[in-house]
Design a protein around this nucleic acid. Structure first.
Lengths: 115, 115
DNA sequence: ATCACGTGTAATAATTATATTACACGTGAT
DNA sequence: ATCACGTGTAATATAATTATTACACGTGAT
C-alpha cells in the first residue's frame, strides 16, 4: 500500500517527518478538522480555531510545507482580498513495515562520540 | 478501521499527537527501523543508530511515551545488566476522516486575543 | 586495581518551535 | 477621515526540544 499526500506518493523520509511534524500539534489537527468541512479564509479560520492570525500563519506554514493543505487568493465581491485554505487529499498507512522501509535511507551523521 | 498502538486502540487526540511527535524525528524512525529487525540493548542500539547514549535515552523516552516501543531488563550470562528495547505492534491509518474525528475533541483555550 | 562494557542521570548548552506584540497596507461603508 | 474587515510580516519573548558533557555505579576478566 502506498502513502499519498496531495496525490503525490511519499518517498523520502523527510516527507514523512514533515507530515508527522505537521500533525504533532493540537492546533494543527484542529485546523485540519475545520478544513475537512470545507475551505475557509484566514481570518475566519483564526476565529474558528481560536488563535491569533500571526500564530495561525505559523501553523499553516507547517501544514503547507507538509502539503496537507493548500491556499488560493481571491478577490471577494466586495473587493476584499481573501486567502482561502483547503485540505489536500492524503492517505497514510503507518506500521512497522512502512517505517522500516523509510528507515533504510536514514543515516545519522557523525556526532563523533561514543558511550 | 481502527488505529492501534500496543494492542490498544487509540482514542484521545493526545495519544495521536504523542505518536506523531514520536515519529517526527529521523533518529527515532531509525530506531524503529533497527528494532524492526529484532530487540536490541541500549548500548548496542546507540552504536547502531550512531548517537550518544544519553541522547538515545531521550529519544527512547519519546517512543516509549507513545508506546511504540517497550523495554525489559535482563541479567546476561556474564552478569551484566542489560536493557532491551523492542517494538510494540502498531497500525495507523491517517486520512481526512481519521483526523476530522480526532479534531472534534480538541478545544483551543482562550489566548484572549483576536485580530 | 584497572580495564572493558554494561547501566543511569543531572546539569548545561544550543537550537527550534511556539506565541505575542506591534506594526503596515487595501477596500467599501458610514 | 474613521471604522470594520480583510491582507501580511518583522521583531521579540517564552517555552520546549535536542544535544552535549560529565558524572556515578556494577560485573567479570586481565
Amino acid at each position: 500500500m502506498k502513502n499519498f499526500v496531495g496525490n503525490l506518493s511519499l518517498n523520502k523520509y523527510e516527507d514523512y517527518v514533515s507530515v508527522f511534524d505537521a500533525l504533532s500539534h493540537p492546533v494543527r489537527i484542529k485546523i485540519i478538522g475545520i478544513l475537512a468541512e470545507g475551505r475557509q479564509y484566514v481570518s475566519e479560520l483564526a476565529r474558528l480555531v481560536n488563535v491569533s492570525r500571526p500564530l495561525l500563519y505559523m501553523h499553516l506554514k507547517k501544514l503547507e510545507t507538509a502539503r496537507l493543505v493548500k491556499s488560493t487568493m481571491e478577490i471577494s465581491e466586495n473587493g476584499k482580498a481573501m486567502k482561502f485554505y483547503s485540505l489536500e487529499y492524503f492517505e497514510l498507512e503507518i506500521n512497522k513495515d512502512t517505517l522500516s522501509e523509510l528507515s533504510k535511507s536514514i543515516v545519522i551523521e557523525n556526532p563523533e562520540n561514543g558511550s
